[in-house]
């Protein structure tokens, strides 16, 4: 008992703020939303228990739910790899030997500062309009572009471009990770005449694995939950023709526009299951490709 205490006490002291926050502030609302997902709740009158009704409706009768899933999955599949490759590539370019690195780093981070502001929404509509800057550039090389942002077939890709363009946060995290790799490893490899790409696969990738793993998990979670950019660019509706109906945009509208907080909660919990599944898979497979310094044995 004493040993149990001695073993656990320091950790729980460090964990205390989080434990208080989780059990006193976070857990209640989470459980409440789980409860609400089994009710019909319009936020004005009291919630009414309807069992599995919301979930049943979701899977059997709600066409827009499936559309939202389709949009979101397509986006995750495209935006996550695109953004991560972009971020890692630029981070590696910046990591090695450029004196002006600070300037570039700041420049590359700036788009992420603009976030999903109204300015971005207006700008994106202008950039990808039929007569927008993107098409003007394309016209120079003889391509006639579509009206990207208003065509339901292409509008989603403009959001993928937005995600790629705002690669600042994963880039910074990659950079911080690259900084943690001891320089002498590269110097030794240089002396041995190891070519650049092998330095990448033998040194950079394995030592960066924990950070890559972090970015992968976080970007996946974030992309599934993408809200602001889609909401603002589509004026809150998922337009044109539901092509930007991201899952959380649908959820938000169900909750706050159509007064169906119970149904929205059910949607949220299903999304949670999806994200948790993906994260669990990532954690499970990470045993095979992510190795930590302190767990080598």
């Amino acid at each position: 008992m004493k040993r149990f205490f001695a073993r656990n006490a320091p950790a729980y002291v460090f964990l205390l703020p989080w434990l208080i926050g989780f059990f006193l502030l976070a857990l209640g609302p989470i459980l409440a939303s789980l409860y609400l997902s089994f009710t019909r709740y319009d936020m004005v009158s009291a919630p009414r228990w309807i069992g599995w009704g919301n979930y049943e409706y979701m899977f059997t009768r709600d066409r827009r739910f499936w559309k939202a899933l389709e949009v979101t999955f397509t986006y995750v599949a495209l935006a996550v790899p695109a953004r991560l490759i972009m971020a890692l590539g630029v981070a590696m370019l910046l990591d090695k030997g450029l004196r002006t690195i600070g300037l570039y780093r700041a420049i590359f981070y700036l788009p992420s500062l603009l976030g999903a502001s109204i300015a971005i929404a207006i700008l994106w509509r202008q950039l990808f309009a039929a007569d927008g800057v993107v098409n003007q550039v394309l016209a120079m090389v003889g391509i006639q572009g579509a009206s990207w942002i208003t065509d339901p077939d292409t509008s989603l890709y403009t959001l993928v471009v937005l995600a790629m363009w705002q690669f600042g946060s994963p880039m910074l995290i990659f950079l911080a990770g690259l900084r943690g790799i001891p320089r002498d490893l590269y110097e030794a490899a240089e002396i041995d005449g190891t070519p650049g790409w092998r330095q990448f696969t033998r040194i950079t990738l394995p030592l960066l694995a924990p950070v890559i793993f972090f970015n992968l998990v976080l970007q996946t979670i974030d992309s599934f939950k993408t809200f602001s950019s889609a909401f603002i660019i589509s004026n809150g509706t998922g337009a044109p023709a539901d092509s930007l109906l991201f899952y959380t945009v649908y959820l938000f509208n169900e909750a706050f526009k159509f007064f169906r907080m119970g149904y929205a909660s059910a949607l949220a919990w299903f999304l949670l299951v999806i994200i948790a599944t993906f994260t669990a898979i990532a954690f499970f497979t990470s045993k095979y490709w992510v190795h930590y310094e302190n767990e080598r044995d």
């Binding site: 208003t150 065509d151 339901p152 509706t237 998922g238 337009a239 044109p240 023709a241 539901d242 509208n253 526009k257 159509f258």
Partner: peptide
């Protein structure tokens, strides 16, 4: 309010 959204959504396909 939801009918209004549906009108715009379905109408979009017509316009295009």
């Amino acid at each position: 309010g939801e009918v209004r959204d549906a009108f715009m959504r379905i109408g979009t396909d017509v316009v295009l």
